[in-house]
Nucleic acid binder design. Structure first.
Length: 262
DNA sequence: AAGAATGTTATGTA
DNA sequence: CTACATAACATTCT
């Protein structure tokens, strides 16, 4: 489910619904009982998104760290709150909504040093105002690893996942196997800008939009399969019609049009 | 109903 | 020290 845009959107929406007042925290299946009781009744001060990580700041310097991983998701209930179904790790009830967290890869209470360690191992997040692209450029321009692998490395750049990797490299005409150090400064700058734009569109729309921002208001189901992405999970390149090559890279499936991407 | 999927980390190997 | 492969973990959907 989540690439960076999902996380930033969740931070914004949940901050509005939960922050500023004491929260009721529970762990319906008892899978996070200790954490939930520690959070219960505390005021949530705000939620911060960094890459694909979320940090919920509570009073008394108590913080909750959440990472959705591949399967995690949030269910937000604004009216009737249903009985928890499936594996709800944590339920947070606030003044405007109740949020269920299911299937996260990480859900833990952290202290300040933990938080600093986390921040230290994350590269710049293009969705954040404080992001410094220079840090990513330093890593990429000195690496002989493939750009397709570098983009997935959260210590190089935080927030990009498998879909944006495929789509952003396609838009920029870059082959995923190009060595990082072979990119010109100009190619890197464009790539950064494209990634940031895609993440922003995704955050605003609540889903991944890489082909046309005009699709933003259109429900995903109304967009024909072959038109949702350029190469990601496509058989043919949406730009030129050539067959899309798919192969394993950095542990995930990579997709590219070898006509358009060099 | 096996397998894939918008992810990360630890560990082993070269 | 770097790079790559593999396993492990989370859950839902086709």
């Amino acid at each position: 489910m989540p690439e960076g845009h999902t996380i930033h959107r969740a931070a914004r929406l949940q901050s509005a619904a939960l922050a500023g007042a004491p929260v009721t925290a529970s762990s319906p299946q008892g899978r996070f009982a200790d954490g939930a009781s520690l959070l219960d009744g505390r005021v949530l001060q705000g939620i911060e998104a960094v890459g694909k990580h979320l940090i919920y700041r509570f009073e008394d310097e108590v913080a909750l760290h959440v990472h959705l991983g591949l399967f995690g998701r949030f269910d937000t209930h604004r009216n009737r709150v249903p009985d928890p179904r499936g594996s709800v790790r944590l339920r947070l009830a606030g003044h405007a909504a109740t949020v269920d967290l299911r299937g996260p890869t990480t859900c833990e209470i952290i202290d300040l040093p933990d938080e600093e360690r986390l921040m230290a191992r994350l590269g710049p997040d293009p969705l954040r105002a404080d992001a410094d692209p220079e840090r990513a450029w330093q890593r990429i321009s000195r690496s002989r690893r493939a750009i397709g692998a570098l983009l997935m490395d959260q210590s190089v750049l935080a927030g990009v996942g498998n879909v944006y990797r495929a789509e952003a490299l396609h838009v920029e005409g870059l082959h995923p196997e190009r060595e990082g150090r072979s990119l010109s400064r100009d190619e890197f700058d464009r790539l950064w800008t494209t990634i940031r734009g895609m993440l922003r569109d995704g955050e605003r729309a609540g889903r991944i939009i890489t082909v046309s921002a005009a699709d933003a208001g259109v429900p995903r189901s109304r967009i024909p399969r072959g038109q949702r992405t350029y190469v990601y999970r496509q058989r043919q390149c949406r730009s030129c019609g050539a067959p899309v090559r798919a192969w394993e890279m950095a542990g995930r499936r990579a997709w590219a049009c070898e006509q358009c991407q060099l």
